[in-house]
Amino acid sequence: MRFERRHIISMKDFTRDEMEYVLDRAAKLEPLARGGRSDLLAGKILALLFYEPSTRTRMSFETAMLRLGGNVLNLGSKEATSIVKGETLADMIRVVSTYSDAIVQRHPSEGSALMAAEFSSVPIINGGDGAGHHPTQTLLDLYTIRKESHLDNLDIAIVGDLKYGRTVHSLTYALSLYGANITLVSPPQLKMPDQIKADLKARGARVRETENLEETLDCIDVLYMTRIQKERFPDPTEYKKVAGAYKITTGHLGNVRDSMIIMHPLPRVYEIDSSVDTSSHARYFEQSFYGVPIRMALLTIVMGVGV
């Protein structure tokens, strides 16, 4: 595998085979993620450099490492703030890469992970670089879809902020390698950029756009909801209107396919009513859990440990 002892920066670094290699390994490790014990990564140290707040990404990496018998080093939020003022990321990476076997990094500037890779002596895993990439999220999304639905001949609707949402851009990129049938559902001001749509089509995806959530619900396998951020709307009443129109409740689920699943990268705000949580369609908490086996898989791969 090409990623052994290598960096993981963007989904665009992955071929379809390589994605599947990661998903297969995650499937093997899933029992350990569910509470097994292992010493696959005993003696290994993962450094977590988070310059921005994160709960799920950071904690699931920690869990993955601990469950595999490894250790973690955390950059505290206080340290992070003092560093933001003085030391460069490049220097930080040069130093921390001498303390650890791999680094997971989240940083607010686009391209920061690629730059870190230039200065690091150990693999960098991008845990989010501003509006750039977040490949481990995409891999866990793919894992969820493959496990709870199917990747081939997939009908998926992706709802919310399709303009700025980095999650959505890399997910649709990955799905285009499977020739997915993608419906993009968003308010007009948050439509997916034309260039990205053109790229998706060029790679074999079918792409349709609509502003209407309800009309798409009954003919899809996966409903992927995302958060619409208030900050995108200068006018608060406009935000309320949009947030209301892209909210899913049990009332919407009457005629959907039995096997349809609902996903969300979390945290959710209004997009999914809590009444949906107990329906047979909800998968967002499972999705969140699958971050652990996916991150286990990636850690073993970049640290060069076979399973």
């Binding site: 391209g111 920061s112 501003g130 509006a131």
Partner: peptide, 28 residues
Amino acid sequence: NCISNTKEPVTSKFEVKKDPVQLRCIYC
């Protein structure tokens, strides 16, 4: 918001495409 526009020790780097000329930042 590109890392090449910060105090970090990296210089800008672009891939060049022709007809018409397009510069794609390798970082962002």
